[in-house]
C-alpha cells in the first residue's frame, strides 16, 4: 500500500561508511570514470586481453598462417604439436591451427550474435511486460512460460531440419546456416532474460525516482529508456554473457548431430566432438578447442562482471 511510513532513515548502519561529501577537485569525464571502475577489476582486464587476443587471432590469423585447413595429409595423421603443425593434426592429417582459426570465427560470431538475439527479444518482452502490467503483462508472461515449457532440443532439431534447406538456398551454404543457428538459439534462450528484466522493472517502478520522473511529465518511452532500462542493466549484462557460452555449446551440439554447419566446416564445438574417439591417442585434438571455448567463455563472463560495475556510478572508485 502506498501510504507513507514514518520509518526514518536516520539509522546509522552502513551510512557511516559513506563520505558525506567528496573533496572538490577536477572531475573525470563519465567515460573515464567508467574505465577507472572497470580497471579495478583485475580479472576483467586480463579477460579483455585474452578475448582480444582470441578475436585478433581468428581475424588476422589466415594472413599469417597460410596452411590450407582442408588439405588432407594421411601421412601426418593425429600428430601432436610440432613445428610444421603447431597445434598438431586431426584424424585426416588436417592442420588443427588453421581449423582452429577458421572455426573460431564461426564459434565466436555465433556466440555473440545468438546472445544479441536472446538479449534483444528478452529485454523487449520483459520491458514491455514490466511496463504495461495488467493484460499485456499476463499475456507476455504466459508466452514466456510456454517457451520455457517447450522441449528445447527436439524443437531445435525440428526447426533446423525444417528451415535448413530454404535458408541455404537463400543465403548460401554458410550464411544461411549461420543465420538459422543464431535465430533459433537466440529465439529459444530469451525467456530467463525476459523474466529478469520484468522483475527488475516491477521493483524499480515502485521507486520514488520513477514517480518523480512521471510527475515531471516524462513519457512512457522516456521512463523506459532513460530511467528503467539503465537501472535494470546490471543483471542483464551478466545473464547475457552466460548466453554467449550457451550459444557456443549449443552450436557444437547441433553440428555434432549433423544439423549445424556441414561436416567439412570446422567450428570449435564440432572439432571437440570429432576428437572424442581419439582422446587416448591424440588428446591435443580435444584439448585445444576445449581450451579455446573455456577461455573465451570465462573471459566473456569476467568482462560482463567488470562491465556491470563499470556502468554503475554508485561503485566508488
Amino acid at each position: 500500500m502506498p501510504g507513507s511510513t514514518p520509518a526514518s532513515l536516520i539509522a546509522e548502519g552502513p551510512e557511516v561508511f559513506r563520505a558525506p561529501e567528496l573533496v572538490a577537485g577536477p572531475r573525470l569525464s563519465l567515460r573515464r570514470q567508467a574505465w577507472r571502475r572497470f580497471r579495478k577489476h583485475t580479472l576483467a582486464v586480463a579477460s579483455l586481453f585474452i578475448l582480444g587476443f582470441l578475436v585478433l587471432g581468428v581475424v588476422v590469423g589466415p594472413l599469417l598462417w597460410r596452411v590450407p585447413m582442408g588439405a588432407i595429409d594421411l601421412s601426418a595423421m593425429l600428430q601432436g604439436p610440432l613445428l610444421d603443425h603447431p597445434f598438431g593434426t586431426n584424424g585426416l592429417g588436417q592442420d588443427l591451427l588453421a581449423r582452429m582459426i577458421f572455426g573460431g570465427r564461426i564459434s565466436l560470431a555465433v556466440g555473440v550474435a545468438a546472445m544479441a538475439v536472446a538479449v534483444g527479444i528478452g529485454v523487449a518482452v520483459g520491458a514491455i511486460a514490466g511496463m504495461a502490467s495488467g493484460r499485456v503483462d499476463a499475456a507476455l508472461m504466459w508466452l514466456t512460460d510456454l517457451f520455457l515449457a517447450l522441449p528445447q532440443l527436439p524443437l531445435l532439431l525440428l526447426l533446423m531440419y525444417l528451415f535448413r534447406g530454404a535458408l541455404r538456398a537463400a543465403f548460401g551454404d554458410e550464411g544461411g546456416i549461420f543465420l538459422l543457428i543464431v535465430v533459433v538459439i537466440g529465439g529459444l534462450r530469451w525467456m530467463s532474460l525476459a523474466r529478469l528484466v520484468r522483475a527488475q522493472f516491477l521493483s524499480l517502478r515502485e521507486k520514488e525516482f520513477i514517480e518523480a520522473a512521471r510527475a515531471l511529465g516524462a513519457s512512457r518511452a522516456r521512463l523506459m529508456l532513460r530511467h528503467l532500462l539503465p537501472n535494470a542493466l546490471g543483471p542483464v549484462i551478466v545473464a547475457g554473457t552466460i548466453e554467449v557460452a550457451n550459444a557456443i555449446i549449443i552450436e557444437s551440439t547441433l553440428s555434432f548431430l549433423g544439423l549445424g554447419f556441414p561436416p567439412d566446416v570446422p567450428t570449435w564445438g564440432h572439432m571437440l566432438y570429432d576428437a572424442q574417439q581419439y582422446l587416448d591417442s591424440a588428446p591435443h585434438w580435444a584439448l585445444i578447442p576445449g581450451a579455446a571455448i573455456f577461455l573465451s567463455v570465462l573471459s566473456i563472463n569476467f568482462i560482463g562482471d567488470g562491465l556491470r560495475d563499470a556502468l554503475d556510478p554508485r561503485r566508488v572508485i
Binding site: E208, F209, A212, A213, D312, R314
Partner: peptide
C-alpha cells in the same frame, strides 16, 4: 504541480548526474 519525496536515497536516479536529474524537466 510538482512533488518532493521522503527518501533522499530512492528519489534520485542513481545513474544520472545532478545535471541530468535537474535538467530533465527542462528537456521534457
Amino acid at each position: 504541480m510538482q512533488i518532493i519525496f521522503q527518501d533522499p536515497f530512492a528519489s534520485l536516479n542513481p545513474r544520472h548526474t545532478v545535471a541530468g536529474i535537474v535538467g530533465e524537466a527542462l528537456v521534457i
